[in-house]
Amino acid sequence: MVILTLDGKKVKVKEGATILEAARANGIEIPTLCSNEALKPYGACRLCIVEIRRGTSTIIDTSCTYPVEEGLEVKTASPRIIEGRKIVIELFLARSPNVKIIRKLADEYGIGESAREMGKDNEYCILCGLCVRACNEVVKAGAIQFAGKGLQKVVDSPFSQTAEDCVACGSCAFVCPTGIIKKTDFESTALCTPQGCEPTGPQRQLLNWKVEQKLRVCKKCGNAYAPEPHLDKIRQQQNLPNEFFDICPSCRKYPVVDEEKCLGCGGCMENCPCGALELDDKGGYEKKAHVYTQNCTACHSCELICPMVAIS
């Protein structure tokens, strides 16, 4: 454990944590735009700056990237810091005056209009990089990245073409603080040619990356619930059986064996990927399948194989 001073209060923090994490754990609010617990610190938005006194010198640095040290004295809202944050917000406001979250911050810090000039005056993307990092670090798809430099810097699919590695999971749209990444699910789509229209089933569209992907339809309830390539990717990463995603999470239940119908052939246990099914020997031919739910992932592969339709 490390002891440091946060806004005049001595606090104990786990080693390896950042100042931002330490502050949040102790109920001190620091505004951020580019940080997310699931992602590595990045330090892009500069909103989380704090004043750090280390020995005899004082510096200003981003709290999200600064690891805690014994004896640090940190001020999260000193006049110097407030002044600095105001400049950052004014710069954001100049670039993206119509983004809600920026407007809200500006109101909080009492900034009416930005007097600064950014070369761009109605940009929605604030280049926080959350989408790119989520795609690389969490989804591990690496479908989108930054392109260009300086004023031309944007987030884009490779060569502005359809992002081929995109699994249409929608994580980018979920993490985007400005809402500029649009994810749309269509219940039914059709491909229309002069010869006529051919239905193509439910699809997800991510306009920013020019991606359209089919949605998997649950075999039980018939609802479209997640994009096909995303499910396939998870299945491969986790080494799950082919049938695992045939059924949507809300329909997924632990299997129940009807002992009246079960003849104890063992086909279900031979197909169970997690060893959750075993035979209960009740003497003679009386063997019945038994589900050990602690090992079961509710993938329903046993249900699909049972010759006596005894598992549901």
Partner: peptide, 24 residues
């Protein structure tokens, strides 16, 4: 009464994952 449900192979040999009455 032991079900083998998975196996991993390495240069040292094979590790077989088994389950018996719910215990792995």
């Amino acid at each position: 009464e032991t079900t083998a449900y998975d196996a991993t192979d390495s240069s040292q040999g094979v590790e077989l994952k088994c389950v018996s009455k719910g215990t792995k």
